[in-house]
Structure formats: structure tokens, C-alpha cells
């Protein structure tokens, strides 16, 4: 079933993509093949593959148990939030906030999670920002405090 749904989505993407590609026209051109041929070719093949996927008999997708899926979804949202807050909160704070719940998902106690969070946040900041010269954000709030 999952394959049928995905096949449908991909078929839609390929049709929508081809429709969008119609407008890719070079104002003037020296070459016989313009900017839209290659994407259209790829999308047409994608559409055919999507139909083949839907017609395939065997379906062997095993999704994780609902409880695990929920946790994986939550993990995804946490990483997404981490990505978005990365420079707003600064590396150390954002990392600490990300590590605690993720560590909990993988069976850490609250204490381990908190220690791990602070440890990774501060440790990686020192390692990368100070020792390896890879600049990391300190966070807008720090800048605000410092005026």
C-alpha cells in the first residue's frame, strides 16, 4: 500500500514538474537543446518508474511499530527545531536543548541526558570554534546582552 501511495505522489510530481518545465525557455540560445529538455526527460522517466512501482506485485515495507514511529517523528521535529534555532540560540544552548530529549529516546536517564547535553554543547564548541577554527554561532541573545 505504501508503495502505491508513493508511486501516486511521484507520478504527480513528475506531471507537475513537466508542466512547470514548459516555461523554462532561454531568451536567446545558441544550442539546439535548451534548459528544459533534460528535466523533462528525467521527469518522464520518473513518471514511468512511478507507474512501474505502483504495478509491482510484491510489497514488503515494514513500518516500525506505532510507538517507535511516533518517537522517530518526534526525533525528526527535534532535529528540525535544532536546525532552525542553531544560530538564534547559539550552538551551546541549541545543542544542549537538542541532546537532552534525543538522549532520552535512546535510553539515557535525565541526569545522563543533561550531563551529555552540556558536555556535548560545550565540548564540541571548544573543539570546533576554539581549536579547529570552525566558527560557530554564539547566539543572538549573547550579542544582545553584550549590547
Amino acid at each position: 500500500m505504501s508503495e502505491k501511495i508513493l508511486g501516486g505522489v511521484l507520478l504527480f510530481i513528475s506531471l507537475a514538474g513537466i508542466w512547470l518545465a514548459r516555461s523554462f525557455e532561454a531568451p536567446f540560445s545558441y544550442e539546439p537543446v535548451g534548459p528544459r529538455a533534460f528535466p523533462m526527460l528525467i521527469l518522464a522517466l520518473l513518471g514511468i518508474s512511478a507507474i512501474a512501482l505502483m504495478l509491482e506485485k510484491k510489497s514488503a515495507v515494514t513500518w516500525a511499530a506505532p510507538a517507535t514511529l511516533q518517537r522517530i517523528g518526534a526525533l525528526f521535529l527535534i532535529v528540525l527545531a535544532y536546525a532552525w534555532l542553531f544560530d538564534k540560540l547559539g550552538f551551546i544552548v541549541a545543542t544542549t536543548l537538542m541532546v537532552v530529549p534525543v538522549a532520552r529516546f535512546f535510553g539515557a536517564s535525565w541526569k545522563q541526558g543533561a550531563l551529555g547535553g552540556v558536555g556535548l554543547g560545550v565540548g564540541l564548541f571548544i573543539l570546533f570554534d576554539r581549536l579547529l577554527d570552525v566558527a560557530l554561532p554564539t547566539g543572538l541573545w549573547v550579542a544582545n546582552i553584550l549590547g
Binding site: 532535529v79 535544532y82 536546525a83 542553531f86 544560530d87 550552538f91 545543542t95 537538542m98 541532546v99 534525543v102 538522549a103 532520552r104 529516546f105 535512546f106 535510553g107 539515557a108 545522563q112 541526558g113 551529555g116 547535553g117 556535548l120 554543547g121 564540541l124 570546533f128 570552525v134 566558527a135 560557530l136 554561532p137
Partner: peptide
């Protein structure tokens, strides 16, 4: 529990840098 968030953080460091 230490490895996984560590991997996540280090990956983001790379992209951001």
C-alpha cells in the same frame, strides 16, 4: 544516547560552517 545526538550536532556544525 551520547553517540546519536553527537552525530547530529557534528553534522550541523559542518553544514553551518
Amino acid at each position: 544516547w551520547l553517540l546519536v545526538p553527537g552525530v547530529a550536532a557534528i553534522s550541523m556544525v559542518g553544514v553551518y560552517a
